[in-house]
């Protein structure tokens, strides 16, 4: 659907994007992960047609878009930038009506969705009196005005409290259930992307270091699994046995023995542990989380 081929972007002496290759498929939720200044926003702007690559190609539906194609593409996109203050002198409703006209649509089409995001009472108030969270909700509402096929969200939960953040993902889930929508979600809050994305692209210093599902990524990176054994006391015999099975980083915390297991040794460790089941109360093996994958990428 959207393809970036060897895209470079240079601002003066700064190389913001370095040979970026990425294919965004129709209907997928792609998480774009990277530290601040990694090039996430630049990449999103290039996908949106706001910024042009210094070199390389952006393909939309398999072709290099003309001016007219960009216009049509933009009409099908909802974009939520990281930070928008909007106009303090307009009410929430006036703001949305303005952006609906700019997007060539009418607010009536999406009024139910809008009212789910912001109550009627809040919509009648001037944006100048909005909290940061309310502005962020208004930002999401404006992105949805044209009932987009592609939703581009740049750090969407920054400034939201945990309740607001959870509500945001509920709304996003509802949208995904209602229609097939492609979502590009950029964030540096790794935990919140973990179970909300189909694929993750990790961007560092302007280049995509890895892309794929979380499982694909940790397998590719050969990251170990996390072993957690509920145990009464420190058990040196068990420790010795685990070491013999290739288990490393053994430590104790809050009544657990915690260690790392190479994924290829998982079954061997489990069957060996079953032979010693009187030595512990419970055992869990966890896959690496996004944070571990992120830090495993260099």
């Amino acid at each position: 659907m959207i393809e970036l081929k060897d895209v470079n972007k240079v601002y003066g002496n700064l190389k913001a994007l370095d040979s970026v290759n990425l294919h965004i498929r129709k209907g997928e939720v792609l998480g774009l992960v990277g530290p601040n200044g990694a090039g996430k926003s630049t990449m999103l702007k290039i996908i949106l047609g706001i910024a042009k690559p210094t070199s390389g190609t952006v393909l939309i539906n398999g072709k290099v878009p003309s001016e007219k194609d960009w216009r049509e593409f933009k009409a099908s996109v909802g974009y939520m930038p990281e930070r928008v203050a909007f106009y303090d002198n307009l009410t929430g409703m006036e703001t949305l009506k303005l952006f609906a006209r700019i997007k060539g649509t009418k607010i009536d089409r999406m009024i139910n969705m809008v009212k789910r995001i912001l109550s009627e009472d809040i919509l009648k108030r001037k944006v100048g009196g909005y909290s940061k969270g309310m502005r962020q909700r208004l930002n999401l509402a404006q992105a949805l005005l044209n009932d987009p096929d592609i939703l581009i969200l740049d750090e969407p939960t920054s400034g939201l409290d945990p309740v607001g953040s959870r509500e945001f993902y509920h709304i996003l889930k509802d949208i995904e259930e209602r229609k097939e929508i492609t979502v590009i979600l950029s964030s540096h809050i790794l935990a919140e992307l973990e179970d909300k994305t189909d694929r993750i692209a990790i961007i560092k210093n302007g280049s995509i270091k890895a892309a794929g599902s979380l499982k694909e990524l940790y397998r590719r990176l050969k990251l170990p699994l996390k072993l957690q054994i509920t145990i009464k006391d420190k058990d040196e015999v068990l420790e010795g046995m685990l070491r013999g099975l290739g288990v490393s980083d053994i430590g104790y915390r809050n009544g657990y023995l915690i260690a790392s297991v190479p994924s290829e040794n998982k079954l061997r460790v489990l069957s060996a542990m079953l032979q010693e089941k009187e030595r512990f109360q419970d055992i869990t093996i966890k896959e690496p989380n996004l944070e571990e994958v992120f830090f495993g990428v260099h």
Binding site: L48, E82, R83, V84, F99
Partner: peptide, 14 residues
């Protein structure tokens, strides 16, 4: 400064 410029530029507006 308000961040609205990117909203205009990402809209189907020349």
């Amino acid at each position: 400064d308000r961040g609205t410029l990117d909203l205009f530029l990402s809209s189907p507006l020349s």
